[in-house]
Design a protein around this nucleic acid. Sequence first.
DNA 1: TCGAGTCTAGCAACCGGTTGCATTGGAGTA
DNA 2: TACTCCAATGCAACCGGTTGCTAGACTCGA
Lengths: 322, 322
Amino acid sequence: MTVTIRDVARASGVHVSTVSRTFSAPHLVNAATRTRVLAVADDLGYRPNRAARALTTGRTHNVGLIVADIANPFFSSLIKAAQAQARLRDYHVFVADTDEDPQVEEELIQAFAKQVDGVLLCSPRLTNKTIERLGEDVPLVVVNRRVKGMPTVLMDVGRGARLAIEHLVGLGHRRIALVTGPSGSWTSKEMQAAAATGEADVVFLGPNPPTELGGMSAVTDVLASGATGVLAYNDLVALGLMEGLAERGTVVPRDMSVIGVDDIVPGRLGSPKLTTIAMPTAAAGRMAVDMLLHSVDAEGAPGVTTLETSLVVRESTGEARR
Amino acid sequence: MTVTIRDVARASGVHVSTVSRTFSAPHLVNAATRTRVLAVADDLGYRPNRAARALTTGRTHNVGLIVADIANPFFSSLIKAAQAQARLRDYHVFVADTDEDPQVEEELIQAFAKQVDGVLLCSPRLTNKTIERLGEDVPLVVVNRRVKGMPTVLMDVGRGARLAIEHLVGLGHRRIALVTGPSGSWTSKEMQAAAATGEADVVFLGPNPPTELGGMSAVTDVLASGATGVLAYNDLVALGLMEGLAERGTVVPRDMSVIGVDDIVPGRLGSPKLTTIAMPTAAAGRMAVDMLLHSVDAEGAPGVTTLETSLVVRESTGEARR
DNA sequence: TCGAGTCTAGCAACCGGTTGCATTGGAGTA
DNA sequence: TACTCCAATGCAACCGGTTGCTAGACTCGA
C-alpha cells in the first residue's frame, strides 16, 4: 500500500538505517549509496511518515497558531504570513479560532501541546498566570501582549498613538478623545499610556467592545466630550464612529477628525477614507514563527521584539475649525 | 518527563493495553477499572500522544485546508467555519496558502498527504487530471469546482447570476455587461452559462484578473459596450469598476448599476454600498469538513452538494434611465 | 457437577522511522 | 607487516500507543 523505509531498503539492497540516514543525516552515508537510495526512493514514491518520525524524535515539525477570530483581516494577514514563513522552514501550521473565548483558548493550547513543537498566541485573552503555566507544557510565543519570561512580538502601538495625536495636534486640534477598547486589552493600555505622556488634552472614553457597534455607541460621549479629534481603538470602532457621526449630521473630517488602528480597510473603501495606524501584521507573523522555532531548539533568554507601526494619513482627518 | 500510557498502567496496577482500551474502547473494560484508570491518568496529567496513535491506527485526526489566499475574506470566513466544524469532531486543521500558484498547490497536497486524513481544496487552480491523480494519494474534497468522481461542495453562483440579471432587467436595464474572471475559473464559466440562458442581452467582457485592478481596467470596455448594468466576477472587481467609473464621471447607480459577487465588503463600507451575490462560505466550510470526514471512513459514491446563493440588494443598483 | 458462554485483562507483535553501538574493510603510518 | 583510525553500514532497541489472540474467572443452565 504505502511505501515505507523498509521497502526502499529492500529494493536498494541496504539496511533500513542506511535509508533513514540518507534522509536525516546524509553526510553519514557514502555518496554512491546515497544517490542509489534516493533514486530508488523516488522511483517507489517514498515519502517519510511524519508521525513515525515525530514519535522517535519528539519533533512534529508542526506549530499551532491561535487567534481570536480568523475572519478578522488583522489576524488573517498575520496567519498568511506566519504560514508562509513556517513553510519556508518545512513546518506546517495548525490554525485555530477561539471566538474570543478564553476557555476555548486554553483548551486549544492543551490540545495542541502534544502534537506541535510550539504555539503562537495572538492577542491572548487568558491571564498572565495561566499563560505562564501553559508555557511549561509547550513552547509559546505571544504576540501583542507582554508576558513575563516569554518570547514576545509586540507592535509599537504606543508610538503609533503618539504619532496620531501629534498629527491631530499639528492640525490644530486642542482636545482629543481616545475611544478605548476592552478593559483587559494590552493594546488599549498601551494607547492610553502613550496618550497620557503627551502634551495634548486627551480624554479617555471606554471601555468599549472592539466592534463597529462599540464605535456607534461611543458617539454620544465623543460629542459630549468637546473633542474635535478622535483616536479609536481600532478601525472597526472608527468606522462605527463615522457611521454614528454621520447619522447626527457631524461631517468627517470637517467637524471631527477620526483615526483608527490596524489598517484593515481594503484600499479604496470608505468615504472619507480612514486615516489609521498601520500594524505590521505580516512582519509579526513571520517574526513570531522564527522566534518560536528558535526557542524550540536553542535555549537562552526569551527575546522581545517590537515592530514599528506607522501612521497612514488618508481623508478622515483635517484641520480643526476655529 | 512526559506521562505515557505505561506510567498510567504502572500507577494503576493494570497492563498498558487496559489503559489504552480505557480511552479508545471503554466498553471493553470493567467500569470499576475504568474509573480507577481515569482517575490515575487525570492525576498524572496523562494526555495521549497523537503521533503514536496515528502511527498504529493510520488516522491522524488532522485535515488539511488549502486556499489560494488566506487573507481574502471569502476564504478566511470559510476557514473559520471549517476549523470550528473540525474541532467539533475532534479534528485539527492545517491551513495553507498557495498564493495562487498551482505548483505550490500540488506541493502542499503532497506534503499534507502523509499527515492528514484528508484535504479540502478550495477553488483549486490545478487541472482536473492532476486533482484526480492526487486524489489517489489522499482523500480530497473540492470546493467551488467540479471534478469527476470527487466529493464536491458547490455554491450555486449560476442561480445567483440569474437573480442578479433578473434584478437588473426588472429595473429596466436592456443591455448588461458580464465582466468575467480568469479564464480557468469554474465560477466564471458558471456565470457565463447562466447569463447566456436568460432572455437578457448580455455581453461578456474578459477574461480579467480577479482584483480591483482587473475591474478598473475593464471600465473602458464596459462603457463602450453600451451596457447600463454590470455584473462583475467578484466584489473586488466590482469595487475597481466603481472606482474607475467614478473617475470618468459616471455615477453609480444613476448612470450605471453594478453588482458584485461574494459579499466580502464589511457591512457599512463603500459608497454607494455594493449590491452583491452573497456566497454561503461558512456553510461551505462546514459542509466540506463533514463530507471529508464522512468520505474518510465510509465508502460510497462521492456526493455533490450545492449550496444556495442569494442576492443582497444595496445601493449600487438602480433603475435604468430612459 | 460439568460444559458453554461472557467478561476482563494480559501478552506480544506491530505501526515506520531513529540512533547508539558494534562490525567491517581499507587507508595511512611506523 | 602489524597496528591504528576512520568511514560506511548493519543491528537492534526504542518512541507510545493499538489490537488480535489467549487465558482466567465467573455465570448460568442442564
